Simulated assay, not measured.
Amino acid sequence: SIPAIDRDRERLAQIDGAMPRLDAIAAGCPFHPRCPQAFDRCTTQRPELLAASATRAACWLVPASPERGAAGVVA
């Protein structure tokens, strides 16, 4: 996610582990190897960066638009 720097907000949750080298990023979502909520779609498709509440996020589980629906799944 990319937080807005001009707003007060709670601390963002971190994912355990370290980012992979730029030449070793996995297919699909680059966070899926260390994300506890990853599911099959995360391993093959990269989500777009979209508005999500007061910030932006690229995650299939973040509701961001009517097209993505309540669970971030394209209808």
Rank of each mutant, 00 (worst) to 15 (best):
R11A: 14
A57I: 13
L61E: 01
C59D: 10
P63M: 01
V73A: 13
P33A: 00
R46C: 11
A26K: 03
A54E: 12
F39W: 02
R9I: 02
A52G: 04
Q14L: 15
D16C: 15
Q14P: 07
R46F: 05
A51Q: 14
A54R: 05
A71M: 08
A71Q: 15
D40F: 10
V74T: 11
G28I: 00
M19S: 09
A4W: 12
C42E: 06
A51D: 15
A52E: 14
A13Q: 12
L50V: 12
M19E: 04
S53K: 12
S1I: 05
C42M: 03
A4R: 13
A75Y: 13
R11L: 13
E48P: 14
E67L: 12
I15L: 01
F31V: 01
C42K: 00
R56M: 13
D8K: 07
A71R: 11
S53Y: 15
T55N: 10
P66R: 01
R9A: 15
G72H: 05
R34N: 09
A64Q: 14
L12G: 05
T43R: 09
V62S: 13
Q14Y: 15
A58R: 01
G28L: 10
G17R: 00
L49E: 10
V73I: 06
W60E: 10
H32F: 07
S65F: 00
P3T: 12
A18W: 03
G28Q: 04
P30V: 04
P30N: 09
A71H: 10
A54K: 13
I2C: 06
D40C: 06
G69K: 02
G69I: 03
V73W: 05
D23V: 08
H32I: 04
A13Y: 03
E10D: 08
H32S: 09
Q14H: 13
V73D: 08
P63Y: 02
A27M: 06
D6V: 07
F39I: 04
D23T: 00
I25M: 15
S53G: 15
C35F: 02
A64L: 03
I25P: 03
R11D: 14
M19Q: 07
D40K: 07
C35D: 06
P30C: 03
A18E: 10
C42P: 04
C42A: 04
G72C: 01
W60Q: 07
L50S: 15
P63T: 07
Q45F: 14
G69P: 02
C35H: 02
C42W: 02
A57T: 13
R34V: 02
T55Y: 07
T55M: 15
T44P: 03
R7E: 09
A70E: 14
R7S: 03
C29D: 09
P20S: 01
L12P: 01
P20R: 00
S53M: 12
R7Q: 08
I5V: 08
A64W: 06
P66K: 08
A4M: 13
S1H: 06
T55L: 15
E10A: 08
